[in-house]
Write a protein that binds this DNA or RNA. Structure first.
Ligand code: NAD
Ligand code: NAD
Lengths: 211, 211
DNA sequence: AGAGATTTGTGATTTTTTTCACGAAGTAGG
DNA sequence: CCTACTTCGTGAAAAAAATCACAAATCTCT
């Protein structure tokens, strides 16, 4: 009954990184890892690694570090890696079809179960293991209550509409590739992938460096 | 000679967002915008909008807001939008080719000028306006000193090698899609797009909600 | 078993980022 | 020109995040 200190956002967003590197170490046959080593792998300081992990309990061993298997299981637990997560993707264009073809998601427990498009030329096509359906059938996802995550890869003008629709049908997490801030109900989490934004960050750096 | 207060990282990363929404407003024929309105469009508070912009001077008008054209020009200046930025992409696979085909970058002054791959099946192919070259010719980019930005879309095992190579040839900004933390020299900026990470963030949220 | 080295876990501190809150400046309408 | 309203710019305060630094725990070696 002591599990209730709130986890800072910043910490939560790094768990995935820890798990990735821990898994890599495990694959290489390691069985112990120190906060210094894990810090090097993740690009963080050792202190930050320790502090982050300490939010979830004490499972390191002074003088020797963290047991890889144990740490992996804790992180897997936190991240819900024993579940399979079902995803719907809307917009099977350039980016959308690249995502559909990527086998890596499935290996990590993320299955894109449905894909929708508005374009007759896309509908019926099969990418990876998914056949693209007509977006007018999108309420299909309501029947399958297991789909809580949507990936939106439609053009910017349609993104808000699509977001409203999928949230109506039970989606509460949205990964949005369109360059627009989606207005969603409370309780819905949106993460934006904004590639132009990233590039403009570079041009800002390059421009101010010249100053 | 007073231009020297340091701009916080967090502020810099939002400039692009402001410019995007300001440009949208301009397209719609607007000529003034308040911090409240801009806050709504960007998903930020009005106070934050004002504070962010205030790092660059005072160009709002009390009682009426910001002049869109003026604000746009300031942001364009800061972000170096009067330059054309040249980019090299390495790895013309799923994601890489989706990026090559995207016309949006060019419209925003980002030109993917060269693309390289190691696979004979990819070499010689043309995506968008770029023809994929053999990665063994990658030092071509050294001749073209205008290329400072690289997009890395190779498999995880090659990413570190590619990063080392491109930085040797003058790249100082890297947009990395591979799920690995790149070790680069000081002075090189890396931004990671880690889609599995984003999805795991969702599964963390969904898992802890159930808790 | 003891000495010396390593590494954790965490309060305290510092830094960074966001929010608050209000005076000053400007607008609008008579 | 006066009153009522709007909106900016910004110090001050609060909140969030990162870093420091060290006691305590454990390990290794002899
Ligand atoms: N491709 C990139 O490299 C890239 C880079 C940055 C941003 N983006 C953004 O990502 C989004 C997708 O880009 P893209 O290049 O894949 O575009 P795209 O045009 O190739 O694909 C968009 C797909 O969405 C479909 N669509 C349109 N309206 C729809 C609707 N209402 N319901 C369902 N499907 C609909 C279209 O038929 C098309 O297949 C865009 O918002 C774009 O701005 C893409
Ligand atoms: N596609 C996705 O949706 C997705 C999602 C998450 C992460 N990623 C990551 O993005 C990266 C690319 O993914 P993808 O799906 O496009 O992979 P992909 O296999 O389709 O493409 C990779 C390309 O890189 C080329 N390549 C390999 N080694 C190279 C080298 N040394 N130099 C030059 N080219 C080389 C390959 O020939 C191939 O064309 C991977 O690291 C992947 O983990 C992709």
């Amino acid at each position: 009954m002591q599990e209730k200190k709130k986890i800072p956002k910043s910490v939560a967003s790094r768990l995935s990184l820890y798990l990735r590197e821990i898994s890599r170490l495990e694959d290489e046959g390691g069985d112990k890892v120190s906060s210094v080593e894990l810090g090097e792998l993740t690009g963080l300081t050792d202190a930050q690694v320790r502090k982050d992990l300490s939010y979830f309990g004490q499972f390191g061993t002074s003088g020797s570090g963290y047991e890889i298997l144990k740490l992996k299981n804790i992180l897997r637990d936190l991240l819900g890696k024993d579940n399979i997560w079902h995803i719907v993707l809307i917009g099977a264009g350039n980016i959308g079809s690249a995502l559909l073809r990527y086998p890596g998601f499935k290996n990590q427990g993320f299955i894109i179960k449905e894909a929708f498009d508005i374009d007759q030329k896309k509908i019926g096509k099969c990418y990876g293991e998914v056949t693209v359906k007509d977006v007018r059938q999108i309420n299909d996802i309501e029947k399958d209550r297991s789909i809580k995550i949507a990936i939106i890869t439609v053009p910017v003008d349609s993104a808000q509409d699509v977001a409203e629709e999928v949230t109506r049908y039970g989606i509460i997490c949205i990964l949005n590739f369109s360059p627009v801030i989606l207005k969603v109900d409370e309780g819905v989490t949106v993460r934006n992938i904004d590639l132009s934004n990233e590039l403009e960050n570079f041009s800002f750096i390059l421009t101010s460096a010249k100053g």
